[in-house]
């Protein structure tokens, strides 16, 4: 029996596309309420790792555990589908390109999954949507369609949509990378608010300042391995590994 005292537990995660190894034996644990940032150059495998947590990209080896339940357990196809759909309800995910449903209003974007999967009545779902949208400051736009929103507003709605399923864990896959610089902050503010609510979060990001300010731990990944891991003040200020140092130097220069 695997130790389940950790909230999120990734054990020997391994992923290959043919001969290309994208993740090489990665292990990681996240405690309840912790916020972990994953940084690294593109192609380092950080998005793949994040997408493995809710099995959007299936691992070729290793285990993912959430709150004592194995996410990617071996089951016959039909049973696995049922199991993974239940697991995914507990894992919210926010994408770089928002992926709001363009044919639905903001309200419908948020209410659809709870009504379909949690059998909420329309009134209950509406109340839930209003709460969540209020939380991200998007209540005024509840009847708008996604095409009528700015990128930052879309991303806030996407966060509300994920939160409406009351997830135990939130995954952010470069949530601010596609935004105009002046819109980044409104999304970061929402994420900070989630941090204050003690939401467990794993964040793939290019924003070192945000990671430093909000996260409990930072992982630096390169070429499918975790090169360095630690509290942000150590990883950002006094990295031990040369590769981390080089990445941060380039990144900070690039940002200037």
């Amino acid at each position: 029996m695997t130790d389940t005292s950790d909230f999120v537990r990734i054990e020997h995660a391994q992923k290959s596309f043919g001969k290309l190894e994208v993740l090489k034996d990665i292990s990681l644990t996240v405690e309840r309420g912790q916020i972990v940032a994953i940084i690294g150059p593109s192609g380092s495998g950080k998005s793949t790792l994040l997408r493995a947590i809710n099995d959007l990209d299936a691992l070729t080896g290793g285990e993912i555990w959430l709150d004592g339940v194995q996410v990617n357990k071996t089951l016959p196809h039909r049973q696995y589908e049922k199991h993974i759909n239940e697991m995914r309800q507990q894992i919210g995910m926010v994408f770089q390109h928002f992926n709001l449903f363009p044919h639905l209003t903001v309200r419908e974007n948020v209410t659809m999954a709870p009504m379909l999967l949690k059998d909420l009545s329309k009134a209950e779902a509406n109340k839930l949507a209003e709460e969540q949208l209020d939380h991200v400051g998007m209540l005024e736009r509840i009847e708008y369609y996604p095409s009528q929103l700015s990128g930052g507003q879309k991303q806030r709605v996407a966060i509300a949509r994920a939160l409406a399923m009351k997830p135990k864990l939130m995954l952010f896959d470069e949530a601010t990378s596609a935004l105009d610089p002046e819109l980044v902050d409104e999304v970061n503010q929402v994420m900070k608010k989630l941090a204050e609510d003690h939401m467990t979060m794993i964040i793939v990001t290019h924003e070192m300042d945000f990671a430093a300010a909000v996260c409990d731990r930072v992982l630096f990944m390169d070429q499918g391995v975790v090169v360095e891991e630690g509290p942000p003040e150590v990883v950002f200020k006094n990295p031990v590994k040369d590769r981390t140092r080089e990445f941060l130097r380039k990144h900070i220069e690039g940002a200037k």
Partner: peptide, 8 residues
């Protein structure tokens, strides 16, 4: 992907 992520 977004729909599957919500659990659909």
């Amino acid at each position: 992907e977004a729909a599957r992520t919500l659990g659909l």
